[in-house]
Amino acid sequence: MASIYMKKFVLITLVALSLSYANAQTKTQNLIIVTLDGLRWQEVFRGADSVLVASTFTGDKDGVKKRYWAATADERRKILMPFLWSVVSRQGQVYGNRDLGNKDEVANPYHFSYPGYNEIFTGFPDKRMNTNDPVTNPNMNVLEFINKQKGYQGKVVAFSSWERFPQILNASRSGLPVYSGYADVKTKDANERIKYLNELQHNVPHYLGDSTRLDFISYEYTKEYIKQYKPRVVYLAFDETDDMAHEGNYSFYLDRIKQEDGYIKALWDMVQSDPAYKGKTTLLITCDHGRGEQPIESWRSHGADVKNSEQTWFAVLGPDTPPTGEVKTATTTYHKQFAQTMALLLGFDFKKAAGHEVGDAIMSVIKK
């Protein structure tokens, strides 16, 4: 009986602690979320995979070795993702290195994109969200919630290469501007650069098909939108890491990782040079699902039937996050915790307003 009371006491204490943070003043006033679709934790923490480099999935083996190979995992990961391992890991936190016993996972049972993004933004691994089809998401998402808060109305925006986010974020209900696929930015006062991107995206080769645009275009839109409109919450969803993996092109997969790490660095450097963002902005970087590892062919795939594709990672950098670096504790975090974490960083409590299950925040990313 005593143990039951103790468990209730601990639960009540944790809830009270979470609510106290929601009411506390945080330094974070702006939030940038970036996802790299299907990027494995193995490359994030180990760099280029020697088995895959030597396999038939890598064409120009000598070229890949020249660009990405080094003797140790620490060296290789710094070559592949220099911003993550030179800035974020020193000034923020990086989670999910299973070689050190730290685990990050999706809680949904499906391990593919729509369920993964639903989990990130609603805090709820809803089993109904079990398709990549254009099904409108009935769940409230944290971006929608933040957009209703004082000082944030009209200051939340999403850009994605994959076309599915208007449904994932329920743009028709939420009213969020969600520029996905080949959608133009049609704001009346758009600057000339944004107008040029509206034209350019339709004229560049559609390497990813006629629905999913190049990540470079999504990045350029995001950069120009931040410059002109100064949004307070920005979501940027890259897609090409997943596309190259599904194609089985390990060389291009590594190239996209390196390139997108550079895009994130450029965005961070830009906002840190702007008084509206400097010292007031938190950056969250993650993915929507993992991929297989064994047998070797499974690196191309993910899903409920692909072993270990629930294994993921994330990183946080900002004024409220202690600079503890690579997390080495034997703990497990879940993507259903991100939504409440985002809200608490801005001083809000999403759990009280969502109307559905929401995972507890990851309190280790917020200073105590």
Rank of each mutant, 00 (worst) to 15 (best):
S160N: 05
S20Y: 14
A73S: 13
D320P: 01
A48T: 09
S172H: 10
T324Q: 13
I33M: 07
A73M: 08
V233D: 03
G38Y: 06
G248F: 07
S218R: 09
E326M: 09
G279W: 11
N97F: 02
F314N: 01
N198S: 07
N147H: 04
W69K: 01
M363N: 06
K8V: 11
E144M: 06
Y219I: 03
Y117G: 02
F124R: 10
S251M: 02
I285Q: 04
G318H: 02
D133S: 12
T26L: 10
M81R: 08
G347D: 05
E75Y: 07
Y21C: 06
K188D: 13
S18I: 14
N249Q: 06
V185Y: 11
L254T: 00
L52P: 05
D215M: 00
N308G: 07
Y182P: 09
Q337H: 11
V64K: 09
R291C: 09
L267W: 04
T312I: 06
K127L: 10
I257V: 12
D269H: 08
W41A: 12
K195N: 12
R232C: 03
N132Q: 00
L346V: 03
T332H: 12
Y225H: 12
G116N: 08
N132I: 03
V156L: 01
P323H: 09
T187Y: 14
Y207I: 14
E75F: 08
Y95W: 15
G38Q: 06
F159R: 06
L169Y: 07
H246W: 05
S20A: 15
A266T: 15
A54T: 08
P275Q: 08
G248H: 07
